[in-house]
């Protein structure tokens, strides 16, 4: 019963990952790509983490998986914010444009 639920959650998680990846490949600009990745992948990761928590052996293991999900959530939303802000600043700057590489650490 628990195993069936875990498999179902895993499959649902994989579906959201797939949707996020399709969004990354198909969406036209960087902003909507980030949108697709951060929303869909975090949900997918959460569902898979939930499936692993259901099948985990101990409470400690369960809490560790939960912690991993929470840290991934915090990190990915922060990165999303930083990328979005960097892109917004670049579109406002006169020399900006899509020609520059995505990587930029200095502002």
């Amino acid at each position: 019963m628990i195993a069936a639920a875990a498999i179902g959650l895993c499959l649902a998680g994989a579906f959201f990952f797939l949707a996020g990846t399709v969004g990354l490949l198909r969406f036209p600009d960087a902003m909507s790509r980030i949108h697709a990745l951060t929303k869909a992948d975090n949900l997918g990761l959460g569902l898979i983490a939930l499936a692993l928590m259901l099948t985990s052996q101990s409470l400690a293991e369960m809490l560790k998986i939960l912690l991993i999900w929470l840290v991934a959530l915090a990190a990915s939303s922060t990165i999303c914010f930083l990328l979005g802000r960097s892109m917004q600043r670049r579109s406002q700057s006169p020399s900006g444009g899509d020609a520059q590489p995505l990587v930029r650490y200095r502002h």
Partner: peptide
């Protein structure tokens, strides 16, 4: 040093 001036990142 060019610290990133993002309170969100700092919080993280």
């Amino acid at each position: 040093a060019h610290p990133v001036d993002a309170p969100v990142l700092r919080g993280l």
